[in-house]
């Protein structure tokens, strides 16, 4: 396992330590040459100190050899990366935050629809226990405070809404963590970038590994 980590360290600097287990993300601290766990507190501190998430979670074009067509989205929840396939074996890699308890799902879906500044409707159980949510029982209008952030992609299986979304966030420091509720969150800049590149109907592959296995598939 050590060899694997040092390889990953050289290549990445950031890994989700051998797993997609909740809060298992670690980052390599070059000053102490040690792996430290990347939890919400560290993430907030990092974001404050650097004005952004660690470099590996920032949007970048990477080499990505695949048979999938340009325009396809591949989500590696374990590593907290979302790839948008480009021509010539390249992809744009975005950092993502994923479900608190893992995804609990994996599969091949498609972008059924997409929305700018989407309305957020809290789930019924959240409305029942949280008075703050209750006032939005009929939907919170889109805007800077809306937890879905600037854009949302609604993932469909055939013509059925899966209830899973790729969306923006009001907590930009949370990228790289397992913290959302089953959805895939991105920084608003990134989700806007993705929105402008991806068409409705695009194929989305959520990989079956790590967190996706927790609840069985």
């Amino acid at each position: 396992m050590k060899r694997m980590l040092s390889r990953a360290a050289a290549a990445l600097g950031v890994v989700a330590l051998s797993a997609g287990i909740a809060h298992a993300t670690q980052i390599f601290d070059p000053s102490t040459r040690a792996w430290v766990s990347y939890d919400p507190k560290r993430a907030i501190d990092y974001y404050r100190a650097h004005g952004g998430v660690p470099a590996d979670f920032r949007r970048q074009v990477v080499k990505f050899r695949t048979a999938e067509k340009p325009g396809t989205i591949i989500i590696d929840g374990n590593r907290h990366f979302l790839y948008l396939v480009l021509p010539n074996f390249q992809a744009i890699r975005y950092g993502i935050g994923v479900g608190r308890d893992g995804f609990g799902w994996a599969g091949i879906v498609r972008v059924g629809r997409k929305a700018e500044w989407p309305t957020w409707t809290p789930p019924a159980e959240m409305v029942a226990r949280d008075p703050n949510s209750a006032k939005y029982a009929n939907g919170m209008p889109g805007g800077p405070d809306n937890p879905l952030g600037a854009r949302a992609f609604y993932l469909y299986e055939g013509n059925r809404d899966t209830i899973y979304r790729i969306h923006g966030t009001t907590e930009p420091w949370s990228i790289g963590l397992d913290i959302s509720s089953g959805c895939i969150r991105m920084n608003n800049d990134d989700v806007i970038d993705l929105f402008n590149r991806v068409e409705v109907g695009a194929k989305v592959i959520v990989l079956m590994q790590g967190a996706a296995l927790y609840k069985g598939v």
């Binding site: 694997m4 390889r7 990953a8 290549a11 990445l12 990477v62 080499k63 990505f64 050899r65 695949t66 048979a67 999938e68 591949i74 590696d76 590593r79 990366f81 790839y83 992809a91 994996a106 599969g107 091949i108 592959i205 990989l207 079956m208 590994q209 296995l213 598939v217």
Partner: peptide, 22 residues
Amino acid sequence: MLLNMPEDMAMASIDAAAALGQ
């Protein structure tokens, strides 16, 4: 753990592993 899944998903996971040297 032996996983059953469509071939496209399996190939994409190989692509992702190869991209990161995992």
